[in-house]
Design a protein around this nucleic acid. Structure first.
Lengths: 344, 344
DNA sequence: CGGAAATGCTAAATCGATTTAGTCGCAAGC
DNA sequence: GCTTGCGACTAAATCGATTTAGCATTTCCG
């Protein structure tokens, strides 16, 4: 049982409680009491105390003691917010592991983990500031509060930021302006006259810029304004609901740009339910952040960040920073990828 | 630059190299040299040595030193293989975080991370055996080699296994037999006469049992054999290709059970391309392991593990084990969830 | 010229767990 | 009677980094 607000239980606590030395406790914890000939009665007393006091070993201490002093251990982290989808993150992890495996050898070892923070609460993640958790991190899916935190301190280890532009860090970025523009061009070239852009109500920097560039392009090319439809959240259900409302109100729409694929998926449903056909009545463009955009019905035309390139860049940068400790942060812009499929 | 096979560089190495004490080095590393009045020349020499020797701080040591001795730190891990999709894993993480947040307080803190291993190489994950990485873990997406490893040793901390049955651990399991049976029943009740089961060529324990139970039920109810179609892999493209071959060869099919939703998604495409309608010509049943099964066109009827329940159970068990150190391992079977949608 | 203040650094303790090299009694053996 | 051996345990070193307290010098100022 945990003891309210007392100091954590350590081997010393237990040792004192039982009246033996910490070594004896440790011996029992490691199940070495046979070979080290502890009296069965003592072992039982120690076991009882461990249970009674609710001992939880200190991992940092164990690791320090357990590690082989001949090998260099590197801790890498991929930090992302809970609120964001893990699709891209898991690809990043796989790529990090690939490079790490390649340089793992006799004296070198890597641990890679994904850790999540509540959007806006990155600063609360323990060990970030005092560098006591990672030798290098990739940070992604931050919100402005997190960005402000990062911009305010220069973390003293390798940091690569994915999807945000921060002056003091190495950043890998897509080009939402270009993406929005190209999406608009595709729709307009397909003779779309009443373009609509579907966004979540809470815009991230990326989604805002995509939508903005889309509207600006429409304005520049046609002199008219694109309609903006805001979904409550990021899910297909949110997208479906928002677009259903738009179409149901009799508003025009013959071309749709959804700033995330999940919204596009919801939009598909709303469009079909309204008896419209894709792309004949309404052409749809997504961004390609969904694993299976290719299997939407019809397959979704996508204009968006080139994930392959982004993943590769971000991981390459991380390893570069870790070996070469660069002084100047760099910004890497990854041009959009355009995949024409049947939906526009 | 890393120095080949030498011992890792520590603050001592650097101190000796420069001719100062480790404290001075540490001071510079923490950027406290101003307030502690180190001579600028010394600072520069130390910085140069840090760069030259390629110093990488030991995280375990930093953590041990940095942590507040008043707070109890708990390390939780979710271990999964690279080769598996992260959909369920990310849900597990969110749920773990929820419970952890609920019990985080003054003297208590949790760190939760996802770590991945190569399928079959779980044993190679450092710190598992000597308990130097986690106070508790959820293990999932193991393959038989990993299971053998786990079965062979009883890890001395809280372990919950998701999706595998191991005698010495607390396991949370779906019931693939029941799932396969119910899937068959749904199709047969819909007057399906030529049922087909679509599986990946490399069957996992779960997918094998689902398919097996499906076929057994068909046999028992109708006296005929269900056709088995094997896809090369787990992706929609694999599923589409396999089913296309089946339909193209003129083989019968008026009801399909796909043992993963990604295969079902591919099957949708093959079916539509062949000019058949869902569910009129071919009814389709999936398992509900895809986030957006609800937005397939038509929405996918699913008979599969009840992910909500599984996630909840697995996390509850983890926290239970961590506080109560149970002696007897338990097996928790989660009954299937059936979600009727339009596809069958 | 003497004392105070500033400068520039180091020794040693610390974090928590593990392990090596003993220590201390007591019984058995010669 | 003295050694040997064993049973049951402990003291102290260790892992690597950080921090506190403090020790020499040198400089400043009246």
């Amino acid at each position: 049982m945990a003891r309210g607000e007392k100091r954590p239980v350590t081997v010393h606590t237990i040792a004192k409680h039982v009246g033996v030395s910490p070594s004896a406790v440790s011996t029992v914890l490691a199940n070495r009491h046979e070979e080290r000939r502890l009296a069965p009665a003592t072992v039982e007393k120690i076991r009882a105390a461990v249970r009674e006091l609710g001992y939880v070993p200190n991992i940092a201490a164990r690791r320090l003691r357990a590690h082989d002093p001949e090998v260099h251990h590197h801790e890498l982290g991929i930090l992302t917010s809970f609120e964001a989808p893990v699709f891209l993150v898991s690809r990043v992890l796989r790529q990090v592991q690939r490079l790490a495996d390649a340089r793992t050898g006799a004296g070198r070892r890597y641990s890679i983990s994904i850790e999540m923070f509540h959007a806006g609460r990155l600063r609360a993640m323990p060990g970030l500031l005092n560098a006591s958790r990672f030798n290098g991190v990739i940070v992604t899916n931050t919100v402005p509060e997190d960005d402000a935190f990062l911009a305010g301190t220069t973390l003293p280890y390798a940091v690569v930021v994915l999807g945000r532009r921060l002056p003091n860090y190495c950043c890998v970025l897509d080009t939402p302006g270009e993406i929005g523009r190209k999406a608009a061009e595709i729709l307009l070239k397909g003779d779309c006259r009443s373009p609509v852009v579907l966004t979540p109500a809470l815009l991230t920097q990326s989604t805002a810029e995509r939508a903005e560039a889309f509207c600006a392009t429409v304005r520049a090319e046609t002199g008219r304004e694109a309609a903006r439809v805001a979904a409550l959240g990021f899910t297909p259900a949110n997208g479906a609901e928002a677009l259903r409302a738009h179409l149901g109100a009799g508003r025009r729409c013959d071309g749709l740009y959804a700033v995330t694929d999940s919204l596009a998926l919801g939009a598909y449903q709303a469009i079909k339910d309204a008896g419209r056909r894709i792309p004949k009545d309404i052409a749809v463009v997504g961004v390609g952040d969904h694993e299976h955009a290719d299997f939407f019905d019809p397959p979704l035309t996508c204009v968006g960040p080139s994930n392959d390139t982004i993943v590769e860049q971000v991981v390459t940068q991380l390893f570069y920073l870790m070996t070469h400790r660069r002084v100047k942060p760099v910004e890497i812009f990854v041009p959009p990828s355009v995949v024409r499929r049947a939906s526009a």
